[in-house]
C-alpha cells in the first residue's frame, strides 16, 4: 500500500528544481525569517510556513500570503543552514495554490502571473502596457492615474514602444508549449 501522501510530501514532490534538502530537515532556526526582506509583509514568516507544512496545516498554508510576498531574492537559500531551497519552495506553493485555485482572492500575484503567461503566449515577449490593466484596479483611481502618467512620460522618453513586439516563429513556440501540456489551446 502506498504511504499516505502528506501535504508536506505533496509539496516536496512539486519541487522539480529543488536541489536542496528535504523540507523535513528544517531545524526552525529562523535564519530565513531573519534574512527575508519582505517578512514584515507576510502573515506567516517563512520559518512558520515551513513548520505549518510539516504539521500538515494545508488550509492555513494555502491561504497564507507568505509565498506571494516572496521577492525571489534567494537570500534565505544561501543562508539556510539546513540547505533547504526555500525560494523554490515558495514557487512550488504559488503553483500549487494556483492549480488548486485556493489562493486568497485579494492577492494580485496570481492574476498578474496568469496575465503575464497569456501575454507571452500571444506575442512571445512581455510588454508592460498590456500588463497594466489586469492588475491596475487594485490601486484605484489614483493608482490608474499615476500609472498612466508614468506610462505616457515613459513613451515620451522613448522607453515604451506603443506596440508590442511579436517573435517571428510564434506558432512554433505555441506548438512547443502544447507538447509540454498537450491538452487545450494556450490562449
Amino acid at each position: 500500500m502506498a504511504a499516505k501522501l502528506t501535504f508536506s510530501k505533496e509539496i516536496a514532490n512539486l519541487l522539480y528544481a529543488m536541489h536542496g534538502n528535504p523540507i523535513k530537515d528544517c531545524i526552525q532556526c529562523g535564519t530565513c525569517s531573519g534574512t527575508c526582506p519582505a517578512v514584515e509583509f507576510m502573515d506567516h514568516s517563512p520559518r512558520e510556513l515551513i513548520a505549518m507544512i510539516g504539521a500538515n496545516l494545508k488550509d492555513e498554508v494555502l491561504h497564507s500570503n507568505t509565498y506571494w510576498s516572496c521577492a525571489s531574492c534567494y537570500y534565505c537559500n544561501v543562508r539556510c543552514p539546513a540547505g533547504i531551497d526555500i525560494a523554490d519552495l515558495m514557487y512550488a506553493l504559488k503553483r500549487y495554490s494556483m492549480w488548486k485555485d485556493q489562493y486568497k482572492k485579494d492577492l494580485i500575484g496570481p492574476k498578474f502571473s496568469e496575465s503575464f503567461v497569456k501575454m507571452i503566449m500571444r506575442t512571445g515577449r512581455s510588454f508592460e502596457p498590456v500588463l497594466a490593466p489586469s492588475y491596475i484596479f487594485k490601486y484605484g483611481t489614483r493608482g490608474i492615474i499615476q500609472e498612466a502618467q508614468t506610462a505616457s512620460a515613459l513613451v515620451l522618453k522613448g522607453r515604451l514602444p506603443l506596440l508590442p513586439k511579436k517573435i517571428k516563429r510564434l506558432e512554433n513556440l505555441k506548438r512547443m508549449v502544447r507538447r509540454i501540456i498537450p491538452i487545450g489551446e494556450p490562449s
Binding site: 503575464f116 503567461v117 507571452i120 512581455s126 501540456i181
Partner: peptide
C-alpha cells in the same frame, strides 16, 4: 528571434513550461 524567458511570473504557473521557454 528570442522569446521571453518567463521572468519570475512564469515559474509561478508552470515550472516545466518555464524551462521550455528558457531552453528555446
Amino acid at each position: 528571434d528570442w522569446n521571453c524567458c518567463g521572468a519570475t511570473a512564469y515559474f509561478h504557473v508552470d515550472e516545466l513550461l518555464a524551462y521550455t521557454l528558457v531552453a528555446r
